[in-house]
Design a protein around this nucleic acid. Structure first.
Lengths: 238, 238
DNA sequence: AAGTGGTCTAGACCACCCC
DNA sequence: GGGTGGTCTAGACCACTTG
């Protein structure tokens, strides 16, 4: 592994374990570069990762302050970025595969993904049950050129582990949109909604590989009372 | 301004104007460093900003690919990070100040913000009307030690412009949480909800300055049919 | 004045892609 | 093999904080 990633991982571990408590300063960049026997720029790359994950905040002339991340059950552990997916994995949840089949790409889907109409895609429908109550429906469409096989056993555990570990795909970035939509009868049944619940939260994502090809379109449908999205955002000045 | 920020701004402008069209390659880092007369590491810092905003994707051995950002009306222009706030400003909207007064910090608020109980804070309630329809209620609490004055005229335009430009505050980062909550009578009236609308989307944010002090807590309450949150996320492997 | 982080450089070597 | 991005270095100068 790269030096700066190793240093990042080490510092993260020490922050989470309390060795560097929140609201205290990390050792200075100069000290860290001596401690790890690397140049200062390498230390700075590691610190930048900590900044991006919201673990520290730097102050010129002062130092690197360890942030307190317990205000909102902050989604920590470096597993962020596709947070709502990961979050649902952390809780005690059961995944059930409702449907898994190859379909022809419809014009609607083609417009979103850029895949040719009538080319092959996997359609995967799963429900996530949390503490015995159905909470989420995930509808995934995957480019069958990129994902040739899709074993039911694997996707009932973790789709992303299968894609990254078994298939070796390098998932890189996603565009996503969160809205609230009217519930359809099918969704109402799957989520066991009562009659006065007419809405669901829908998270639509387009997911891309490192080579910029779009390989997945997902709609993740959440019961209102089960939905929660937590984010850390840095102010971006232009 | 710093060299790398200037270069970032220049490249962003050229990408948005179509001078570097999507799905083409930028000049190589070596070429760019010669074009701008800077070292390669400086170019790489500028490119990192473009990566974070989702404008380009790099590929080792290949180059920097300009991404296509029109899939979801991608929230572009460097104004991201507090996106939902900005988005609502872009649309043709009217802000109305409902309430603006100093209050004593309650135990509940103190727990969220860390401000001492009974210390002074501003409470600011505003509604945002989009195309004639009430869409959002913003309830802001601001630390009165950091924000001594709060002119109604200013906050009916842009609270953040007032804080950053007039007061010179350096807003740095935020933790936020999106959930769906039951509607209260007060909210129902302000948002002019019909009787079968029982929920609203609530975005709760804790906002921090560069010196890591928390100066603002906000609840932004959205009508379900008016809510939309768009995000660009990079996969973070650890 | 001393120490901190912020920026920038010139050069090195490596991994990857493509011809 | 030549070009690309990825990592790393040693050193420089600047801006900011603190005593």
């Amino acid at each position: 592994m790269n030096k700066f990633k190793e240093i990042y991982a080490d510092l993260e571990k020490k922050i989470l374990s309390g060795e560097y408590p929140s609201n205290t300063l990390l050792p200075s960049e100069k000290q860290l570069s001596e401690m790890y026997n690397v140049s200062r720029e390498t230390i700075r790359k590691a610190l930048n990762l900590l900044i991006n994950t919201g673990l520290i905040q730097k102050k010129q002339g002062k130092g690197s302050i360890v942030l307190d991340l317990n205000r909102f059950d902050f989604p920590i552990s470096g597993l962020t970025s596709f947070k709502e997916l990961k979050d649902s994995q952390k809780i005690d949840s059961v995944t059930k595969v409702i449907e898994i089949k190859k379909v022809a790409v419809s014009p609607t889907l083609s417009e979103k993904t850029g895949w040719p109409v009538a080319s092959e895609a996997w359609k995967l429908v799963r429900t996530r049950t949390i503490n015995g109550e159905p909470a989420i429906i995930d509808i995934d469409y995957l480019d069958a050129n990129i994902v040739p096989v899709l074993p039911e056993k694997k996707v009932s555990q973790s789709l992303y582990d299968f894609l990254e570990i078994d298939l070796g795909l390098e998932i890189s970035y996603a565009q996503k949109e969160i809205t609230v939509e009217n519930v359809t009868k099918e969704v109402r049944d799957l989520l066991e909604l009562t009659l006065d619940d007419n809405h669901v939260v829908t998270v639509k994502s387009l997911v891309y590989l490192a080579d910029t090809s779009c390989f997945e379109y997902t709609e993740s449908i959440h019961r209102l009372d089960k939905f929660r999205f937590v984010d850390f955002a840095r102010r971006r000045k232009v």
